[in-house]
Nucleic acid binder design. Structure first.
Length: 112
RNA sequence: UGAGCCGGCCGUGCGGUCGCGCAUAGUAUUAUGUGAGGAAAGUCCGAGCUUCGCAGGGCAGGAUAACAGCUAACGGCUGCCGGGGGCGACCCCAGGGCGAGUGCAACAGAAAUAUACCGCCGCUUUACGCGGUAAGGGUGGAAAGGCGAGGUAAGAGCUCACCGCGCCCGCAGGUAACUGCGGGGGCCUGUAAACCCUAUCCGAAGCAACGCUGACUGUGGCUAUACAUUUGCCCGAUGUGCCACGAAAAGCGGCUUGAGCGCGCAGGUGACUGCGCGCCCAGAUAGAUGACCGUGCAAGACAGAACUCGGCUUACAGACCGGCUCACGUU
RNA sequence: CCGCCCGUGGCGCAGCUGGAUAACGCAGCAGAUUCCGAUUCUGAAGAGCGGGGGUUCGAAUCCCUUCGGGCGGG
């Protein structure tokens, strides 16, 4: 994932929390909304609830790896925010990718 | 063999495929190299560095507290002294001063820094009196050094011997703290992690420090002195230019070669130091390590750099190495 | 990065400066009142002060260290 495809600013996150749709899985909670055309952008949040810095870093890595794995299949023009949950660091990124793919397909965000 | 004390060291290893940060080549997407810790943590101390302040000195405030050393410095470390604990290896100590002043010491007890309840002794007006007394009783954490003898009306360092304690002087050992011995004078409650006194040290803030770049905008200045306009000149005004400063926000630098690491030799009981040779070892900026496969074992704990070092403290599954003590047995 | 505050019964809080009784309210328990309940009244129980160490005759209080929670500034 390229750097300018990451969401960084606080207002970008708040836009998705208030305007976006919300779906959840055991490993994460996902907000999404229409964004810039032709691009897929992602922001990741791992709060203090996750644990130590090691756990928070791992949670972010696992979600990033899962997202990269299915990135070519995701429909263009959407922004996403993934919020890590307490069990996120204990998942394997392949399991998270499976969950993510299933959820996006059910919500019509996969290019077939 | 069992129990224990001290110190050191490691803390998933190797190979392959895809992916990530940085550097160097190369140039338009590839190669090559490299990529978290012993605590990166807590931020408890000490420094470097940067900016501000500053003639010099003092007060206030804070920190430390035997002695000698190590160090850039330290509240750290080493050695040693003193005290305490353990059979021992060894461990622990905030360890100056209450012999400057002030304060505090509940309850109990007669009395808490000075006293007479019981007792003992003397006197008398024989009384629930007066005086003397800290040997004995009882209270307390603490009651006027302990014990024996002399002494006395009864007693008391009142006197003497011995012991104890701290003060002063001398001698010996030690760099010193201190230790040992002798003499003198004396017998003092505890508490300074109570105020305080003494000695030593300390300017403040922190990489969101600070510096630079371009754009926008505001303020001030240009002195006997820039240029143009305002009628020629002077004053004044306006605009442009130059300089300085401020506010908001963006980017870049600061950013990793350093009191550095490894090995060898030498000095020192040690902390550590000197010399020689070799090495370059993360620099991200929402913040880089994931996924899959093979394989080894005791099946992997605590945990993620954010300006940089030296310590301290705390968390930590386990693996390995060395030295020492005690008990039992055998030789 | 810097500065500061708070941990005391189940809950909310005093006591800490200045050392010796852990006080108060709510909840809960028992009893009384009532036909029953609420209210009210009475009574008893429940914490050794976040953990560890030290100073002291004596520590919730003083000192050191540590854990957890919270606030503020740039």
């Amino acid at each position: 994932m390229k750097r300018n495809d990451k969401l960084k600013q606080n207002w970008e996150f708040r836009r998705l929390y208030t305007r976006g749709k919300c779906i959840s899985a055991p490993a994460f909670v996902l907000y999404y909304a229409k964004g810039k055309a032709g691009r897929v952008r992602l922001g990741i949040t791992a709060g203090k609830k996750i644990g130590t810095a090691v756990s928070r870093n791992r949670a972010k890595r696992v979600i990033t790896a899962a997202f990269d794995a299915i990135l070519p299949d995701i429909k263009k023009g959407y922004d996403f925010v993934a919020v890590a949950r307490g069990r996120t660091p204990f998942f394997k990124s392949t399991r998270v990718a499976e969950m993510l793919y299933g959820l996006l397909r059910d919500n019509g965000l996969i290019d077939l």
